[in-house]
Amino acid sequence: MSWFVSYYRTTVGKKVVMAVTGILLFLFVLGHMAGNLQIFMGKDQLNAYAAALHSQSFAPILWTVRVVMGLSLILHVVASIQLTVHSWNSRPQKYAKIRYREADIAARTMILSGPIIAFFLIYHILQLTTGNIQPSGEFALQASGAPDAYTNVVAGFQVWWVSLGYIVAVILLGFHFYHGLWSWTQTLGWDHPKWNGLRRGLATFFCVAIVIGDIAIPLAVLAGWIK
């Protein structure tokens, strides 16, 4: 482990940790969205998917994913705090006037969008995974005693402020990915004149896909298409 510690001490090491954990978290968000879009295929489909995820045979995979995601999240957050403090120290006196040519709003607000997404994530888990927070009333269970994922999602999003908070968080997540999905290629040194256009293109594509795919669910609930 000593090589990891000495590597992590450097800022490039912390950036690589942020890049790798960021990719893992992104892949989870992508898979999570793809799975949950099954809500458009009806109640039985979504609840069957939820049951499959929580089945005995799937448990080792489920817990592996949970542990990897939890560790990734912790490393991502810790590294980001350490780097931000480093960045503040690097410019003790601010400029009176500052203009940016290239640094876009997504890149400059990573340290704001990140914590907001983290707080949303806590709420999201408490509402839909553990059921501790129920804005719509009861945490619905199926006849078998398993959580009724479909009903919980629909009832939750029928509360306007739950939907609004969710939409805002997903848009911020989109901003975070807009910079992050491009930035990690640079951090890991994946630069080549032939592929550089593709890096920006793919980052934008995935960030738009995630925002549209995720927002579609509360919008469909609010519009009454999913009941």
Partner: peptide
């Protein structure tokens, strides 16, 4: 060089491209 730049008090790269 990268370690030295940190020692000298410079920041890290966030890929702002500024």
């Amino acid at each position: 060089m990268i370690t030295k730049a940190e020692e000298e008090g410079f920041g890290f790269c966030s890929n702002y491209a500024e």
